[in-house]
């Protein structure tokens, strides 16, 4: 998963230092945790990496909704492996964010009280088994589109985390497409499920790239800093161009009557998603926002005694070791 709608921070640093910093980025150097960096760069990255990490964590929930109902032992095993990867991605990303001077617990609290966001896509429900296919194929597909360029992002720990994450995400996308293949070539009911999943996930997947470039006010600074590598519209177009032939291969219909290949541009023309729906989802009014945040808050609150118990025990052991020395 990935981050969207990241507001870049203005920066008020020493112009000479800023110029030297920009020159490093322009030379393609990686910025490392102990290097000097503008406050705006640090804050924007914390927000972006944190949101990305939160998306991995919240992203377990729509899949957890089906892990107990997976239709075969193999599907159950694959879904468990995928969910485990996602929790692992969350962990690397929180670690990357920690190198910028913010703790995982602090980030978590900002997620839980709504100060930080996660990707809008996870506020949509997973209603049939085909949704496990659609999430892998479309949602992970869109995430990969966004993440592959981030392997070259300017901040070293983030770029390195992305390399590992991208390898696993491509497995996730393949397993999603494989589910869709089985469904699309299955019984009438399975084909209906597959089409219904595409109908429901198509536009929310397009929204994952964020608002249109003309309305995206925060991109320029992030692109200059190489925190963001491509514009929202470039990535969205690339996603549509890649996905439409896959839908055709599956024998499914993309729910866009105006979708057509444009010989002149060499790209598909397509209908933009309903951006007012996107803004509502971001504002907390998606179909599952409250459920998702409630689930995360409950897990955090009910797990407090475990975390405290583990800390207390670790402290006792440390004290015993010190006493023994």
């Amino acid at each position: 998963m990935y981050a969207q709608m990241i507001k870049s921070e203005a920066t008020r640093d020493d112009p000479e230092k800023l110029a030297a910093f920009q020159a490093r980025i322009d030379r393609g150097e990686k910025i490392e945790p102990k290097d000097w960096m503008p406050e705006g760069y640090r804050k924007t990255l914390i927000r972006q990496i944190g949101q990305h990490a939160h998306s991995e964590i919240v992203g377990q929930l729509p899949e957890g909704n089906w892990v107990t109902r997976a239709p075969t032992l193999e599907r159950k095993a694959i879904l468990l492996a995928k969910v485990q990867d996602e929790a692992g991605h969350g962990l690397y990303l929180y670690c990357a964010a920690e190198t910028l001077g913010v703790s995982r617990d602090a980030l978590t609290e900002m997620l839980l009280d709504g100060r930080m966001k996660y990707s809008s896509i996870f506020n949509y429900p997973t209603l049939t088994w085909a949704d496990m296919g659609a999430v892998g194929w479309l949602v992970d597909g869109a995430a990969i589109m966004n993440q592959v360029p981030l392997q070259r992002t300017s901040y070293g720990p983030y770029a390195r985390a992305m390399v590992r994450i991208c390898k696993e995400e491509s497995f996730h996308q393949r397993q999603g497409f494989d589910i869709m293949m089985k469904m699309a070539n299955g019984t009438e009911a399975q084909r209906r499920m597959a089409q219904d999943a595409l109908n429901r996930f198509w536009y929310p997947s397009l929204m994952m790239f964020g608002p249109s470039d003309k309305d995206s006010t925060h991109s320029a600074q992030s692109m200059k800093w190489r925190i963001k590598m491509n514009t929202n519209d470039e990535l969205r177009q690339k996603f549509v161009d890649q996905t439409v032939p896959q839908a055709e291969y599956l024998g499914l219909t993309v729910p866009d009557p105006d979708l057509r290949w444009n010989e002149e541009t060499g790209h598909y023309d397509f209908t933009e998603p309903d951006w007012s729906e996107f803004m509502e989802v971001i504002a907390g009014n998606g179909p599952c926002n409250r459920d998702r945040l409630e689930a995360r808050n409950r897990a955090w609150d009910e797990g407090a005694w475990v975390r405290e118990g583990l800390m207390a025990h670790a402290e006792k052991r440390r004290a015993a070791q010190v006493a023994a020395e």
């Binding site: 107990t68 032992l73 095993a77 929790a87 897990a299």
Partner: peptide, 29 residues
């Protein structure tokens, strides 16, 4: 164990619980 998916007390426990469930389902096969 898979019923815990995404709701364990800490991220490390989410990973370990899913991993254990995965081992057990593999053994079931």
């Amino acid at each position: 164990l898979s019923e815990w998916c995404g709701t364990a007390p800490a991220l490390e426990e989410d990973i370990a619980t899913a991993n254990t469930a995965l081992d057990l389902i593999g053994q079931t096969q």
